[in-house]
Design a protein around this nucleic acid. Structure first.
Lengths: 207, 207, 207, 207
DNA sequence: AATGAATGAGTTTTCATTCAT
DNA sequence: TATGAATGAAAACTCATTCAT
């Protein structure tokens, strides 16, 4: 009579979150729908009430993941006014996001792989590319502000794009290398080293 | 008495190469032995004459891939004497290796993922980590020589390790980002930018 | 909410029974899961909803078979009071059980073979040995009662164990020989002969 | 030029012997031709130079096995003149044959199973039945001689067939039970017990 | 005669998906 | 809406047999 009220969106998200933790640990292919269902505490068939297929679940999970990452990274950014500190803070935030959720890179990797596989889709719904794009924009904006404030050299403005692309790429690269060899890499020192070099090349050096 | 002659090592390698191209496009899990067999132009069962299991094939393929990459990258390196040019050459060689073989990153990615999934094996026979280690050593050596020759600042020697780790990580990162968005990234300009910044921080600046 | 109702235990048993008939005719190794599925009128994958593996199916089938045999043999035993008749009745019941189910010896044989092959398991969960043990106990009890009632010689009590082991073994042996040469052996006459000889050696002969 | 001389019959037998030891340990189905080839120290293909198929190998191996058993059992029989001792000796010989080659029952079992499976063939080339037949004849002859010599009761002559069938069956049965539970059965005591009972029923009891 | 390379049919098992309840 | 029973396609792997040398 009175149909049980279910917040479909909440449940969708719940399933996707459970799925994410599986995906990140084992990749998309190896994660089975049954496992997700069991972990989510629902019946196998119920997933299909919320997602048309495994593929749809994957897609949604990826989008959710990216949304979460960006929220986490962007949260405290606006509070810091000094561009130099802000850039440093941003980078450390990204690393923190990685650190907090050990699965993070697992998914990123899985997404990368998926993107490489179906390059066709790459143009279409490449949410990851979009995220990187926004990430770069954030960096470029910070640099631009730094130049305006006379903290960074004027030339940094022209190179902002190159710097942003490289920084974003580097963060993924170093995290990747850290993940496969956690004991052998001092993540903090590495990122610090990178930033030093970067700032060294950008800072307005007084006479 | 005289059995049919077959160069088993050649054939093993042939199968592994075919497998590599599949692995790089789809990852290890999604590539089926039948697909490999068909692509290699042999029967399903024949693979098992050369590899005890799919896992054995994967292992061999990975090792072969790493050997190939290192051979390619290291080939012309010794010819260049100037440390600065040598480092630049090394980096460009790595990028070339990536460029020449479209599979390269696919495999690296697949290996990364495998390593993240079964962390147990990571400590054991991590050929990829070994490769990175050698890669870093090469970089460190070049920097060290540069310092000795007065081309790089003396402080570079202490930071050589950090620089090497970052450079290696960066190369993977930028390649990854390039791969998922080939049109949006000017690989040459990016790598060039990275090297400029790097050299800027290392070069012995005359008074 | 209300899932399709299925009596899983019933179905499990049904599958096991179908499997048994195959096992008895061909042995465990030669019986394929597909054959069992087809005979059971279900899909190949469905078996795996009820049994984790072929091995689990085999195990369950064996246990079920032994339970069935013992139930059948033990059913009417308690009704007979005279130890002599009771022993005879018991033996005939065993033969009847063999006769009624043409599979019986096939399975026993398959189990025997399995036990001989993996001797390791033999010590562990040897349900067949347990059944034989119970069978012998039944015989020993009957003999003991016969001695108490003065129907069998007192010496029979000491020899009860030897007699029981031999009788149990004989029943399998004669059934085996009958099976491979049904036309050549008069099962009734043989068992009758065995019992005669046995009773002749146990009966209390008046002076 | 001078073709290598090979005693084909010798080699055939060698292969069959090797095969037998595999069959007895694992059964026919589970033994692979490759295993046999490797154990025999020959190439996989070579077996097919000597046997048309696996089935042919099995058949030949069985026949060889039966020949061997009979030779072993019958060897010293004729030396003993007293029918009573002769029968006892025969039985112990059979047990010895079983004991000497632990595989013996494995094969017998496998053969039994095969016979039960293809009952069609049972009538045709049932070498095992033939062996049992000869075994029974031997026993009947001994009993007959015992009666003639006044050692056994005259009635034993009529019952000789039943006794022989039972004895043969019993020997297989007790061996089978011993095999699956070696620690729990005192083979000697059991066989001794059987013979006692048997002789007790056959012996000519003086007034 | 001897061999081992090659193979496809067949085996066990997994899993995304459907569907009756 | 929720479920889990059912399933067949597909995967990894085995093996008797063939055949070129």
């Amino acid at each position: 009579m009175t149909p049980k009220f279910v917040d479909r969106d909440k449940k969708r998200e719940h399933i996707a979150l459970v799925a994410l933790s599986h995906f990140s640990q084992k990749g998309f292919a190896v994660t089975s729908m049954s496992q997700v269902a069991k972990s989510a505490g629902i019946g196998k068939g119920t997933i299909y009430e919320y997602f048309k297929s495994k593929d749809a679940l994957i897609r949604f999970a990826i989008e959710l993941y990216i949304k979460m990452i960006e929220d986490q990274v962007g949260a405290t950014l606006s509070a810091i006014s000094n561009p130099r500190d802000r850039l440093r803070h941003y980078v450390l935030q990204v690393m923190d996001a990685f650190m907090n959720d050990p699965h993070t890179m697992g998914i990123t990797l899985a997404i990368f792989q998926m993107l490489i596989v179906d390059q066709k889709e790459a143009g279409q719904t490449n949410v990851l590319c979009d995220m990187f794009h926004r990430s770069r924009q954030t960096i470029i904006t910070i640099i631009s502000e730094g130049v305006s404030q006379g903290i960074f050299q004027p030339t940094a403005r022209q190179e902002a794009e190159v710097i942003a692309v490289n920084l974003t790429a580097y963060l993924d690269g170093i995290w990747l290398h850290y993940l496969i060899n956690p004991g052998g890499i001092d993540l903090n020192a590495q990122v610090h080293g990178y930033l030093e070099t970067l700032f060294h090349s950008m800072d307005h050096t007084p006479l």
